[in-house]
Nucleic acid binder design. Structure first.
Lengths: 262, 262
DNA sequence: TCCTGATTCCGTACGGTGTAAAGTGATGCT
DNA sequence: AGCATCACTTTACACCGTACGGAATCAGGA
């Protein structure tokens, strides 16, 4: 399921997200010196989620990976949800911040490609609900990069707002489709094509009138795929490219005609 | 978090999803006659999720709402995940299947509006990961309706495929943004505007160089919103309309120029 | 009519979760 | 030296999904 985020003390969460590396030399507090760091915990969490998915992410497991207990983490991180927020933001780190290439259209495509790659490398990102009210610095940087490209296209503010949301949702949605069909194929050992055939056979048995009830869907399913056979990841990637093309055409139109409405 | 679906026995799941109402009179099996029905369980689950979200959806709670225990459900439903799949599909029931109105563009907008309404009425739908490999009859009907509209636009198969994905992801994504900002506003008792002001103040304190690091974001945040002030649901709704306009413009271009490449 | 076997229902129990609360030691300042 | 403070451990709690086994219930065959 989609995990919500950012429900704890907002000030604490913000301070953690935007934590500005305390000066490393300074230390004048009694008590044992800290054996862990927030960064180490976040890194362990990310590694664990990469291996076992969000389902395998438990405080005990993260603690175990660091050689301590679950409760030891609570000194550094107020709750699991905040840890997830930190992981989410950290996983967006070190993406390119500029695409000086051949014009804004190519730049948007490159931006989307990099984000797509990041999502498929950390598929659990797609299970953490976007549109949470908390934004961390790295996710903000991704947004800023896109906005920089859109600024070069000379779009009015309202269109930029719409475009940012639409582009983000498109990349996220398509990546989600790709990641989950990949996961589904991996769970059963079957190859993709066999898997689909088996599923189609079950469907035919349980709903023999499918073709009559859903003629348009049937027609589309029978149309040749063209782009790489049955590979669902490639199909989703193609759908992303196509969707981006559609959106960018629309944006170009907004730009050329000088339409300022909306 | 996003809940996965469809991991149990696929044949059993499909049979449940497409269950073709057994003839009501017939009953020739020994043992106590069933006191529950799958439909009743699904309805109870939906009601519970509407009230308490997916977090409040436990087998014990669903059973309690029906006057029985958690384990009593397992006779009808193989697991919680399958129940969630059934709930998900059922919640898509009874949406309009045709929009004969003024042309395909208006039809797409009406289709999206109805789906948006459905999502906001059952926000937990947006936490159940779309792009699961299992499709139920009602969700399939939603897809079929959209495909019927797209067929009337005279688009090639590849473009239809892309358009379906893009449109669905757009509606889902925007609705998710709306639902979650609504939930966030509801959790704290604050009005939206106050909430955002408080959040901005915290951000300014924790990241005083925000405006320098993220000039484009800052510029966009300061541009007047125009469409209904600070109401995040209205803002997301406006973004949806804008995004749909962009996509539909792109689709119109594909149609007029007769371009057949993707 | 009684028996038999299938079927439903449910109490109990197990291993897992996040985290509250209290106890244990190590540490640096006074 | 004394002590407040912090990191960390231990224990415990409430809750979760669901495996298991027994009890109750009923249709059909004898």
């Amino acid at each position: 399921m989609t995990v919500y985020g950012g429900q704890g003390d907002p000030a604490r969460t913000m301070a953690l997200l935007w934590r500005g590396g305390a000066p490393p030399g300074t230390r004048t507090a009694p008590g044992p010196r800290p054996g862990l760091t927030v960064d180490a915990i976040v890194a362990a969490g990310i590694a664990l989620a990469d291996e076992s998915g969000l389902g395998g992410l438990s405080m005990r497991a993260v603690g175990g990976r660091l050689g301590t207990s679950a409760m030891a983490l609570y000194t550094y991180v107020p709750s699991k949800r905040e840890l997830l927020d930190l992981m989410y933001d950290q996983a967006h780190a070190d993406l390119p911040t500029g695409y000086p290439a051949a014009g804004p259209r190519a730049a948007v495509l490159a931006w989307a490609a990099d984000l797509w790659d990041r999502y498929l490398r950390h598929p659990w990102l797609l299970q953490v609900s976007y549109a949470r009210p908390v934004l961390g610095p790295h996710e903000q940087a991704v947004l800023e990069t896109l906005l920089g490209i859109l600024d070069a296209m000379g779009l009015p503010a309202a269109v930029r707002r719409t475009a940012v949301s639409a582009l983000l949702h498109l990349v996220r949605g398509m990546a989600q489709t790709a990641a989950e069909s990949r996961a589904a194929a991996g769970a059963t050992g079957d190859a993709d094509e066999q898997w689909w055939h088996a599923r189609a056979a079950q469907l035919a048995q349980v709903a023999p009138d499918f073709a009559q009830r859903f003629p348009h869907s049937t027609a589309l399913a029978q149309a040749p795929a063209g782009d790489g056979g049955y590979d669902p990841v490639a199909a989703a990637r193609a759908a992303l490219t196509g969707g981006l093309d559609l959106l960018l055409d629309g944006l170009d139109a907004r730009n050329d005609h000088g339409t300022q409405v909306l």
